[in-house]
Design a protein around this nucleic acid. Sequence first.
DNA 1: GCTCAGGGCATTTTT
DNA 2: TGCCCTGAGC
Length: 775
Amino acid sequence: MLDYLKELNEVQREAVVRTEGPSLVIAGAGSGKTRVLTYRIAHLLKQGARPSNILALTFTNKAAREMKDRIGRVAGENVARYLWMGTFHSIFSRILRAEHETIGYPSNFTIYDSSDSKSLIKTIIKDFQLDDKTYKPNVVASRISMAKNNLITPMAYANSPEIRSADKNMRMPAISEIYKEYAKRCRLSGSMDFDDLLLITNLLFRDHEEILKKYQERFGYVLVDEYQDTNYSQYLIIKKLAAKHNNICVVGDDAQSIYSFRGARIENILNFKNDYPDHRVFKLEQNYRSTQTIVNAANSIIARNKKQIPKNVFSENALGKPIKILSALTDNEEGFLVAQEISQLQLRDHYQFEDFAILYRTNAQSRIFEESLRKRNIPYKIYGGLSFYQRKEIKDLLSYFRMTINPDDNEALKRIINYPARGIGQTTVGKLEVSAVSNETSIWRVLTALPEINHSQVNKGTATKLMGFVALIDRFQKLSQESDAFETAKTIAEQTGILKDLYNDKSPEGLSRHENIQELLNGIQEFSISAKEQGDPDKLENYLEDVALLTDQDNEKDEEKNKVTLMTVHSAKGLEFKNVFIVGMEENLFPSQRQGEKATQESLEEERRLFYVALTRAEENAWLSYANQRYRWGNLDFCTPSRFLEELDERYTEGQVPTGVSGRASAEQSNVSYSSPAQRFAQRQPSSSFKTRESQNILNKKLVSLKESGRAQDTFQGDDPGKIQAGMTVQHQRFGEGKVLKIEGIAPDLKATVFFRTTGQKQLLLKFAKLRIKS
DNA sequence: GCTCAGGGCATTTTT
DNA sequence: TGCCCTGAGC
């Protein structure tokens, strides 16, 4: 037997070696799914399949990269390189760029991220003179996204009575028009949003048989990871691509389908057997990750679900310790208990901090645990929040890159035409945009037609400024042709003045922004170097193709090691930790019920699966914690999982509506402070340095102005700002004594915004103020 | 371009 | 409860 096959159990091995025909691999939690996928590909290669004939689709870059690395180790890196392996979006954008002529897009089309889409939708709503309180950009965006993921084109949307009447019921009959206009403007900007990458691929294959054929023939083997998370659009593409050779292998776990809110269809995996009658099923049922106790508890949660593929996930690991319940009266106490458990375990059983994870349902819940961990000096990291690529300074610079590569990109243009400030105000941009829309073209084209078309519309001074901007971008375009990505990027960062602008800002934020830009440039340098080594194209254009599809989970830093992990259950999927705390069990784990909505059978089952996912992240110990009296389950401390689950099942009755008032009432009676979900949500604060929201920049600007007028300092010294409370008398280096009015955003990295009033002075907003508590 | 007040609002998230 | 956006006013 081949060496690598010895590392597999029997079912895994069968799933690996049965390479021909449709295969469905049901991979229970912790059952070695990645291992099967990678070995299967390695096996295909060993059997003589050409790497360029293998298509392997994943949902995240991280998954793709890990798999590629592992295959490289088994089959050789030179072979792994040529695999068509990547995320749905990256693979299809590659195909769309290759086939750009057929679909009528430039090959260098921009990929709009969600904030670009949202801002475009906002603009359209404004242009249509619709009320943006009725037409909420978020809602409109999700309707459009839903349509695209179900392959409903603007035309089909307009022609569907059901959809139109649903829109009417939501008092948004014009969504159809907005969708149409949105699609049009994307096209005029030479841009696609994330959903377009799938939708247009579908249309390409639907309308151009010869192209479909080409790819069908190319991809002799199609493999899909996390199949339960595919949406309709992805499902159809896969189906089409695999239709010729019929060698399709999908891997997934219906019990871990938790993404229906973003279009994932569990039906895709449940119906696989109907789509491919000659399929074979491989059930990976042995869990190698968790103790028996945890596996059994997790199983019993989803046992009542109707929609599922029957399986029997088991563990031969030790029985393990019972699942522990932490009950607390208040959320503060809950945080305290969790932190206490962690430090005890770390000291007593010599766990590393990285062995712990705290999982919650919503990001807003992280705060209390951050505070309690910080009090004990337990290092931690938070996932979720603003990604590196979403930060203002990064988006700004990337927008220059985008303009350089595709100047029709309106969203990028609007972002940077006056950043750094060059005296082109909103009014001017507005005029340009109106002109672009009425001429059915991009703002850039309007600009470059100056002064012929628009001479009358803007005054001479503005026109000069605009031409200056055009010249700048022109220069960058030439540069990008001649130089590699790094050279171009560096020059752009310098010549636009962005680098200098940030360098001059000595506030901590300015510093960190400057660092971020440096980091981005370093990344581009690495890209250029490795592209040269590999003989790949090394232009800015090529870098930009990748970067739109990257997220910050794609570059984890070493300094992030050995810290307790805080994240939502959703983002914990695919990860494992020795010790897992599932917190906020009292209600926040069940938002479908907390809103007072009736839980549907579907939502109920998904909530169960979510809990299943959470629990199966734990290898050795799991805790469930909750923080008020509303759901006090008697003496459940240190109970057995089954007892807990019985209790839980009572709550999981279909259609159960929470008695929102009773929680509050009982809390009042017992004189315990009750924190409602709304209140907790309200406490949401930017909780780490990675969460610099764009809108926070307004605050930052305020700081800068304060600083420039010599009225604020920028670092804390001495006292832990966490100890600073409203009402306290504090000493400020420059202003002397004053009273703290209000504090916002006490973050683990010791930053706070303090509203500060000194005698006879106006109220001051001090970010990162240098304060000393006066005792 | 800044400040201030008022009102609406508030899951889960990858690409 | 606080965040975030907007619009009025300077």
